[in-house]
Design a protein around this nucleic acid. Sequence first.
DNA 1: ATTATATATTTATATATACAAGTTTGTCAA
DNA 2: TTGACAAACTTGTATATATAAATATATAAT
Lengths: 259, 259
Amino acid sequence: MEKDNRQAINDLTSCEIDRNSYEPAYMQLVYILKQQVASGLLRAGDRLPSESQICKQYKVSPMTVRRAINILSDQGIVDTAQGRGTFVRPIKLESATFQLTALQAIFNNEKTTVTILEARILTADERVAQKLKLQGKKRIIYIRRRISLAGEPLLYHREYLIYDPRRALVESELEVTSLRGMFQGVSSGGFKYGELSIETTSINEEEASLLKSPAGMAAFNLEHIFYDYANKPVSWGWFICRGDRLRFTTTLGIREEEL
Amino acid sequence: MEKDNRQAINDLTSCEIDRNSYEPAYMQLVYILKQQVASGLLRAGDRLPSESQICKQYKVSPMTVRRAINILSDQGIVDTAQGRGTFVRPIKLESATFQLTALQAIFNNEKTTVTILEARILTADERVAQKLKLQGKKRIIYIRRRISLAGEPLLYHREYLIYDPRRALVESELEVTSLRGMFQGVSSGGFKYGELSIETTSINEEEASLLKSPAGMAAFNLEHIFYDYANKPVSWGWFICRGDRLRFTTTLGIREEEL
DNA sequence: ATTATATATTTATATATACAAGTTTGTCAA
DNA sequence: TTGACAAACTTGTATATATAAATATATAAT
């Protein structure tokens, strides 16, 4: 059974590089090798043919092979060992990475609406001052938003922003599109880097009524802090994400259908 | 202020490649350019010097520069545009990726213990049969485990395994180390790929008592399905992770301290 | 049988070169 | 002023070559 399986896709090894393709040779080689892993022709721990062998087989230069293998190595498909060879990497739970594609889909959706529930200037309390590393009592901007998809509330966002009259953050941040911009690129905001964390929470009465969900329901809490080029925090906030409408998924290894 | 900041780290541009270093030239170049982004000398949207300029400045060959820039591009630090140049990429929430480092830390910890609560063979019900894509009533293995760190219960794991006498999965899977192996590399298991998803849940009475936590508490639910080389599911299970002891964090952009 | 040495194989690094292809800019003619 | 065209500059692809470094293997000596 297993041997038949390998036999059936044996013609993969005889694939050739199409020099007339718009797709570069090194990229074609990446897909060929990836396909061999995905199909099971090459399995975890197996050694790939040496680079010089691949050169001869596909009639490409050593640097082209090297480039393809570097890409596979970067993608975590193979491990290379100097003097020994290149090996198919076993799948590991620890190498799983989750992306915020589910949230991205919400912000990219046409039917998504952002409602400003509150926006005012207040004096930072101890908790906010600590998060934003403020000395003394400073005035900050507090914004509450609700993000709905097709009328159904999905996210509840609260954010504290450093008040800086020069930057006129209020006007830009209040825009509906600014939250979308937060996802698609915050170059205009002048942020240098940000820290994100996800934890779980049971929503309280206020959050429940805003999200039209029962109190105590499980939800994601996505917290974010953004820093400017002087490494000073300029924004602290968090999204309460309805747990019954959101999940994060990922794949380990290579699903054949994805190629 | 901003100009002073840029001026202060201006000497970064005069960094030289150390040809006697154990570190390859292209890697040194990666760090130099990364540092320039992290320090704010190069900011989101800025254009990097052209490759030929970088060649002259650091006295390296075009291919070495190219390799460094390819790495930066792969890491999402810069965007390249043929004919226009290479630009510092603005940070985007959507590009955030979360890793299971928090879980990994648990399994790598010396004080972590795995307790088998139950392990038996049973007939698959409809739900299990659907997840594992079973035809008819098949016998499967059901395992319940509790993972504790220094005596404190953190995870509750339930798993359904295809029963295959040839593979003797029971013995190996029951090992304390097998769960650890699940994280560090499942080459032995013969899995080709897996699907993971994270959602939130409120723990029920059973889960609460096992995790020594109040019922209704928010928790992560990490579900996993692993497939063999014939693309057939061989394992379906999920970890209930105490929300008050687990959070996932990540950084967007480059934190200067991390270099 | 063991050990040391030499050889071959493998990946890693680095350079030089050529051409392709997209973009911008400047020039010149209508 | 406008438009067409050419030139310059950018990144992208591909090859050929040389050297270094780590590993594996075969050989020979002890």
